[in-house]
Each structure stands twice: as structure tokens, then as C-alpha cells.
């Protein structure tokens, strides 16, 4: 199975642990990721101030994948919904398609709308399947509990994600966690917004929003938060210390990307899954699985 891997802006610089774990687990499952050199940002960051341009950025990326006849797999939830939304709009209107292609011609490209876009987690569920995942599990995570964090764009707007998961009562991340043997902590706030979109313009608002979730997680019996989006990671992991300072609280809750969990269950070495790059230390978490490790 071949897929174009779309990294976006955040993953390659600020969530290399997510990328490492995604590449490692995919390789073990026999998925070949193709890196397309021409990919840029999906356009999401400028949807508010340069809407038409932001759509063109997405569609140009899709054109590149179409040239190679590849489906796109995405690690970032915001990129997933941005690319899927641009694709959805493109397919809906012939007049818009003509306009887009007139512009793409200026850079010697064209797009006909054939590319399919999936979040990495969705690919695991739909193209690999839970049964195949189960066959690769060699290490039982039964003594850890995780709080799933779905975030927003993994599920919404549901119109563009089609028949995947319920935005009001989502299950897919719970399913993916449970196949590893780990327990899920079921509580309010699993669909909370991390507030990441406001981090550049009003970071204190982001902090107040994110604190709700961190508080829930740290007062539950969860050993870590489990994420599927690098921007949620920037908020909950990279900014956790700042949020603690701002709100005069202590959370110290590890923030893990789902493929890091899956990788552990596949028996991969935490070193190859980027655990050292996690900002909130994962030592206590890992020692729960492996006992005390001398070199961590």
C-alpha cells in the first residue's frame, strides 16, 4: 500500500515524535510513504485573511498528489480538514473547477479532483483495519490508561469527512487505543477544542481553554493524553509549562501521539518513537510499562 505523506507545517518542526512514530508503525504495517518534495503548507493558517489563496494552496498540493496518482495521508487534523474541504468544494462546482484550473495552468499544473485524503488514524481503521493491527501487537499495554483527545478537525465539519465518526459521540480513537490493550478514560471533554487556532493572536485565551482539559486529565486516573493532531500537541505538550505558570497549577500530564502508543504495542523501542522529544517527561509513564530504565 502506497500513500503520499502530507506533513504540513507543524509536524516536521514541532512534532517530530509524531512523525517518527507514524513512519515506524506504517513501515511495520507494510505501508510505503512517498514524500512529495513540492508539498507546501495546506493553506489553513491564512483561511481567515486570504481565503481564495488558501484554497489554491490546498488544491495545488492535491494536484501534486494527482500527478503521482497517490492518495494522501495526513498527520495533522487541521490539514486533513483543510485539504478535504478544498477537494469537496472543487468537486461540487464546475465553474469553480474551471477557475481553479485556469490559475493552476499559470504554474503548469492541473487538477481533476481524483485525490482522496485521509487522516493517518482513519487510514489505520479503514485501509489497514483493526484485525490487522491486532495481529501485529506483541506488547501488552494493559496496565496504562489513556484519555483520548479527538480535537475538532479530525471529526468536523462532518459534511466533508463523510461517513467516518460521530462528531457528538466519537468512537474511533477509543477503538484504536483499545486494540493496544490500553484502557481509555471515559469522561467529559474528550472532544474539547485545544484553542490552538488562537495561540498566535490571543495566547491567554488558548491557555484558559486548554487548562480545562489538562485539569480533567490530571485529576483523572489517566496516565497520559492521547492525541491525533500536532497542533493540539503544541498546545498541551509544548505549552503545558506556560499554562501551569499562567494558571498557577501543576498538571504534569504526558501528551502522547497515537502512533507512539501503537508503536509501543508493536514492540518498538521508545527511542525510535520519539519519546525523548516529548516536552512533558514520559519517564514515569514508560517505567509503568518497562520498570525503571537505566538510560532514560
Amino acid at each position: 500500500m502506497k500513500r503520499a505523506l502530507f506533513l504540513g507545517c507543524t509536524v516536521p518542526v514541532r512534532a517530530r515524535n509524531y512523525e517518527m512514530a507514524a513512519r515506524q508503525t506504517a513501515a511495520l504495517l507494510g505501508i510505503e510513504f512517498i514524500d512529495i518534495p513540492g508539498f507546501t503548507c495546506c493553506g489553513f493558517p491564512v483561511k481567515s485573511n486570504a481565503y481564495t489563496f488558501s484554497q489554491m494552496m490546498s488544491l495545488r498540493n492535491l494536484a501534486l498528489a494527482e500527478e503521482k496518482d497517490l492518495e494522501i495521508v495526513v498527520l495533522c487534523s487541521a490539514c486533513t480538514s483543510m485539504l478535504a474541504e478544498a477537494n469537496h468544494k472543487f468537486r461540487k462546482s464546475a465553474q469553480y473547477r474551471d477557475h481553479v484550473n485556469a490559475l493552476l495552468r499559470k504554474i503548469n499544473r492541473s487538477y481533476s479532483g481524483t485525490v482522496r485524503i485521509k487522516h493517518f488514524s482513519r487510514m489505520l481503521l479503514e485501509d489497514v483495519g483493526i484485525d490487522t493491527l491486532r495481529k501485529h501487537i506483541t506488547f501488552d499495554l494493559g496496565n496504562i490508561s489513556l484519555m483520548p483527545h479527538y480535537g475538532c478537525h479530525y471529526l468536523k465539519p462532518s459534511e466533508i469527512h463523510g461517513e467516518f465518526d460521530s462528531p457528538e459521540d466519537p468512537k474511533t480513537l477509543d477503538m484504536l487505543i483499545e486494540v493496544t490493550g490500553a484502557k481509555t478514560v471515559d469522561m467529559m471533554g474528550r472532544k474539547h477544542c485545544c484553542g490552538g487556532a488562537l495561540l498566535a493572536s490571543d495566547n491567554r485565551l488558548t491557555y484558559r481553554l486548554a487548562a480545562e482539559k489538562l485539569h480533567m486529565a490530571s485529576t483523572s486516573n489517566a496516565d497520559a493524553l492521547c492525541l491525533v493532531c500536532p497542533f493540539c500537541g503544541v498546545v498541551y505538550d509544548d505549552n503545558q509549562k506556560l499554562i501551569e505558570n499562567e494558571l498557577e497549577q501543576i498538571y504534569q500530564i504526558p501528551v502522547l501521539y497515537y502512533p507512539q502508543i501503537l508503536g509501543l504495542a508493536f514492540g518498538l523501542d521508545p527511542k525510535h518513537l520519539g519519546f525523548k522529544l516529548n516536552k512533558v517527561k514520559t519517564k514515569t509513564f514508560l517505567s509503568k510499562l518497562y520498570g525503571d530504565m537505566a538510560d532514560e
Binding site: C152, P157, S158, G195, L198
Partner: peptide, 9 residues
């Protein structure tokens, strides 16, 4: 607006 789409759904 954080663009979370809760309202839109």
C-alpha cells in the same frame, strides 16, 4: 472564534 465547528454541527 477558534474554528472548532461545534456550532456548525
Amino acid at each position: 472564534c477558534a474554528g472548532c465547528y461545534t456550532c456548525q454541527e
